[in-house]
Design a protein around this nucleic acid. Sequence first.
DNA 1: TCTAGCACCTG
DNA 2: ACAGGTGCTAG
Length: 540
Amino acid sequence: MLQEKASAVADEGMTVAQLGGHPELASDSSHLGLPTTPSIPQNNESDQNIENIKVVLHDRELWKKFHEAGTEMIITKAGRRMFPSYKVKVTGMNPKTKYILLTDIVPADDHRYKFCDNKWMVAGKAEPAMPGRLYVHPDSPATGAHWMRQLVSFQKLKLTNNHLDPFGHIILNSMHKYQPRLHIVKADENNAFGSKNTAYCTHVFHETAFISVTSYQNHKITQLKIENNPFAKGFRGSDEGDLRVSRLQGKDYPVISKNMVRQRLISSHGHLSGKLGAGVLSSHPQVVSHYQYDSGVPLPNSDSQEALSNSFPSSRESSLLYHCFKHRDNTRHLELGCKRPYLDTTASAVSDEHYYRSPPSYDPPLLSHPYCSDALGSREACMYGGMEGEAGGTVGTDDLPVPSLNCNMWASVQPYPRYGMQTMEAMPYQPFPAHFNSTASAVPHHSPSMQRPHPAPPDLVTFTTQRVLPPTPSSASSSPSGPAPRDRAHSSLFHRKPGSPVRSQRDFTGYPTHSPTSTREPAYQYQTGLSSVGPHWTDS
DNA sequence: TCTAGCACCTG
DNA sequence: ACAGGTGCTAG
């Protein structure tokens, strides 16, 4: 059923992902077209094989700088952009084929972190995953020629800690580690949701992993943000003193803020502590897993550690994980059409069966129903989320108008369970309802266990299969308050009931799957970069 | 920990 | 000139 090829390429300077298998989804009928025919891999270049698509992370050097220091992303109630922003260069697409590009941000592990002694440490178990939301690139669907023409930017994507966010921003929990992922879904006309051959692939760049915070913890990160983000230019003071602060305080002379002092102290002191603490890595095993085997023992040190212990462990080379699946048959299809909403009715029931994933992996993306806007009107970003029953999702799914764009959502992921753990029972992750039968998507897992010397079995290793679930419209209605003015753009995207908040995105709920993990279907993971040992996060 | 309001800056 | 993206700070 699945075919996969994997080719991972590690490029030196860039992280390129190539594809591996892709699942095809089978579908019935759908509005959207997914490819209907089962696709057999074709090798022509012109082909539509998703596996030939390569994705390079833009500004990788900058991402690496942050990664080495332990990237932090601010999350606020109103939504905050990521910096560095997620931009990619895509090649290898069929110029005429239409694709939907979307992003989701999944838990990198199941820990909660705290920043102590200038380094990140595990501080307990992660909170249940939030409803996963997808951010569909505003240009979606568009032809391969369009996507390849220039950089594909997800800079408008916003992160929030407001679980009831009405704007469609991606909801995250503070002090948790996350991994952004890029999904490329073929949206040909031929494909209908339900059609059997929908193919998609997922790319993961390790260097984009980050810890969400409500205020920066590591001064080094603050400085990198100020130095590189144009919007923070106002904080670039002279080295000596922060003139801006002085001005704010009405002084003529430079004043160093308490925070600055605090951070500087910490940071200087941190180097020391960091080294001490650097041994364990907790997360991101995935990246490392293939290349580095750490048995859980503190890594031998890598220079990268220098980076202070706070950095994420990672691969220093490229760290891109890529997987593609084609899925066919049973399952649900993605809705790609993007033009029609579809209702999803299925609920969750199905999902678990098909869906399996290796324990330590991310959940695969799911597709969910789309709500989407037509065209997303403004072409601003769209976020989709699926929520399953919880709170937000109250709106009846059935009736909800479906967004015109359908994109399936990928379910959010759940944290990786470590081996052996079955973690998520409590929170079932149901990414997608059953629309898709089974999809396999794989995601790298990060579990620490992966790092061990021996490569894990394929399935365990990285990919998990995912299945697509039917879209769940419900989430759309959940938001309590009306959209803010700034979000007006989004509103056009979704249909919503009067009074309901506007949302541009949907929620997916991603519940962590329970992790059965097995692999039934092949899941594969591809990585391109190699790893390196990077800074590690320490487990406490 | 988190939030709101701020001054400063980019588009 | 306006809208909106920044980190900072007090609370």
